[in-house]
Design a protein around this nucleic acid. Structure first.
Length: 597
RNA sequence: GGUCCUGUAGUUCAAUGGAUAGAACAAAAGUUUCCUAAACUUUAGAUCCGGGUUCGAUUCCCGGCGGGACUACCA
């Protein structure tokens, strides 16, 4: 039974005994006592004032008195306004630390063999351009939320749907054919995804030039866009692709191969991975078949021009196109097919899509469509909708070259970490390999934490001119604290100090120390909330608070230099436990921690 | 036009309806004979506006104003 439940229970008893009224435990609000007041936990008295028919102060006094007499855990109380502040026995905190310290997997569960399956889709790139900062947010959130759900006992399957076909892919292919002169990643030394992206941009440039020319000849913009030779050629290519034209298919495979090699590098650097990858080229036909089945079953309808639609007006939405008049599929068609394949492959209990909030409407529709097609899981799909990453000037646009490239950004962060390391000179005794390792861990830690500490639902701003900080509320701040603790623990081990044994609960520990234990003990609750709310930010903020407190402790209290042996042991155990929570928590964010930095 | 999201220090972010709205960066000033100063300590600075519900509102409701997304036979 955790502390909060103990208090809730005794408060309920006190109200029953004092005023003869039964209250449920969820009526009892308990919060951590604010720093400026004395105590550890605070009970909000206001809800009981009516029951007691006394002032908030008097009510608080009565309840406080009752708790003090009827509970061993509470050692003192005070009432300020309507707030009853309770002080908890030092012995309770020390016993709690003993328990936590002995539990190496504190705060997380390990999914059992037959745990429920949650599938998490994230990343979902197009194979016509390299990944940028927006994708980084998606990947980091997806990977982290998978870790967090695992820690909450789910068996998680990480998945990726690659949008590997369509008109946009054909645009890159066509431009390469026309302007590429046989350029390859090998011949140019360019990363594959970058090379393909270059031709996507080249297409757009040439296409715009054609439109301009046609408009000069008197054509309207709309007409020009439809009739430019390049777009017609790209459409022809898409059709040839759908008809399995060997030459087009071969080029498609080659160029996608370049892109995948590039993506693999980026994913590896980012530290994310997948258990199962789906490709749109495999799923869109399945989706088409499902839509046609839906049409036969009168769930959807066909218009005179042969296009297929879903009428969603009963759900307060519009009508939605599912198949074009030429029979080709759209984004939605493909998502229906992918869903069908996934549920055939796995016994999925919960499906989570990590996709930007610009597609809220899409997923609202998808949920309804899947439901209408008779998939019972349709209604319960989760769209983990996150906000956009914006530049100070506004949204990033691939075609306008205002994107922050994922590879570049990661490389910059790592470089900055390396420079800082050099300046501080703390790794002078390390090998080059160790230095690189630390630079990578710290650089990526800064980037990942920067992104994950923000509430995922909110849009966030990234200013490329002001580089991401390494001081303050940052990943390196937390990593540094970990490294510092590890250094102390190493020294303890070197001097053969054993701090694994039980600590005497009579030890006179300070407020700071008991508060640290209280913070540590809250970790499992944070992990659970992060899972329920789909919010890695909760973990990040928790880690920061813990580390900030620990640093103050570290500054004010001697550990190895403490003379009293039992106290030294206690502080080592406390530090070790903090280190464990840091490592576990950062792990849930997909951030590594260095042994030294 | 409709639907949804959003508005907190100069900037980037916090705050299950609870106490004097927390941090960080930037600014100003300090702390190394002592376990890693990527740390610690001070100082100054904010809830878009107007109503309502409540003992209590940054939070919930209504109305403005500002920002964004979606509303494609694009993905």
């Amino acid at each position: 039974m955790n502390l909060e439940s103990i208090i809730q229970s005794v408060v309920a008893q006190s109200v029953k005994s004092l005023y003869n009224v039964d209250i449920t435990e969820d009526q009892i609000q308990i919060q951590k006592t604010k720093k400026e007041f004395e105590g550890d936990l605070t009970v909000v008295v206001f809800p009981f004032v009516k029951i007691a028919r006394k002032s908030p102060e008097a009510t608080g006094q009565e309840i406080g008195e009752f708790i003090l007499r009827n509970n061993q855990v509470v050692s003192a109380y005070n009432v300020i306004k309507g707030f009853l502040n309770l002080s908890i026995n030092k012995a309770y905190w020390i016993d709690l630390l003993n328990t936590i310290h002995a539990n190496s997997s504190f705060g997380t569960q390990t999914p059992t063999e037959n745990a429920d399956i949650m599938m998490v889709e994230y990343s979902s790139p197009n194979t016509n351009k390299p990944l940028h900062l927006g994708h980084i947010r998606n990947n980091l959130l997806g990977f982290s939320i998978a870790r967090i759900q695992e820690a909450n006992g789910w068996k998680v399957i990480k998945t990726n749907i690659v949008n590997d076909r369509g008109i946009h892919i054909c645009k890159s292919m066509l431009a390469w054919k026309l302007f590429g002169n046989g350029e390859t990643p090998e011949s140019s030394g360019m990363k594959g995804d970058l090379l393909v992206g270059k031709y996507y941009v080249a297409f757009d440039k040439a296409y715009k030039a054609e439109i301009k020319k046609l408009m000069e000849k008197g054509m309207s913009e709309e007409e020009a866009k439809k009739n430019a030779p390049l777009i017609l050629e790209a459409q022809k290519m898409l059709l040839a692709w759908e008809n399995n034209d060997p030459e087009v298919r071969k080029l498609w495979q080659t160029m996608n191969g370049w892109v995948y090699a590039g993506f693999d590098e980026t994913y590896k650097q980012m530290g994310v991975n997948f258990d199962k990858i789906y490709y749109e080229s495999d799923t869109y036909l399945v989706g088409k078949a499902e839509v046609e089945r839906g049409e036969k079953e009168k769930v959807f309808y066909r218009r005179d021009d042969n296009s297929v639609w879903a009428d969603l007006t009963n759900d307060g939405l519009d009508e939605k196109l599912l198949l074009r008049s030429d029979g080709t599929s759209v984004y939605m068609t493909q998502d229906i097919g992918t869903a069908k394949l996934r549920y055939a492959d796995y016994n999925i209990k919960k499906m989570v899509y990590v996709v930007g909030n610009e597609q809220n409407y899409h997923f609202q529709v998808l949920s309804i469509l899947l439901d209408r097609l008779g998939f019972e899981w349709g209604k319960s799909l989760v769209h983990f909708s996150y906000g956009m990453v914006e530049l100070p000037e506004g949204k990033m646009k691939s075609r306008e070259g205002t994107v922050v490239d994922a590879d570049d950004l990661m490389a910059e962060m790592i470089e900055t970490a390396r420079e800082t390391s050099e300046e501080l000179g703390k790794l002078d005794n390390c090998t080059e390999e160790e230095k690189s390792d630390v630079a990578r861990i710290v650089g990526l830690g800064a980037l990942k934490y920067f992104i994950l500490k923000v509430d995922p639902r909110k849009n966030m701003t990234f200013n490329p001119k002001e580089s991401i900080d390494f001081n303050g509320n940052t990943g390196p701040f937390i990593q540094y604290t970990y490294a510092r603790i590890k250094s102390v623990l190493r020294k303890a081990t070197e001097s053969s100090i054993d701090f694994s044994t039980k600590i005497d609960s009579a030890l006179p520990i300070s407020e700071k120390e008991s508060y640290l234990i209280q913070l540590i003990s809250g970790f499992p609750t944070v992990v659970k909330e992060a899972g329920d709310e789909f919010s890695p930010a909760l973990i990040a903020n928790y880690e920061y608070e813990l580390v900030k407190e620990y640093n103050q402790f570290y500054h004010d209290f001697p550990i190895l230099k403490e003379e009293y042996a039992d106290m030294k042991k206690f502080r080592l155990a406390l530090s070790g436990t903090v280190a464990n929570v840091i490592r576990t928590g950062m792990g849930l964010l997909g951030i590594d921690v260095p042994e030294r930095m």
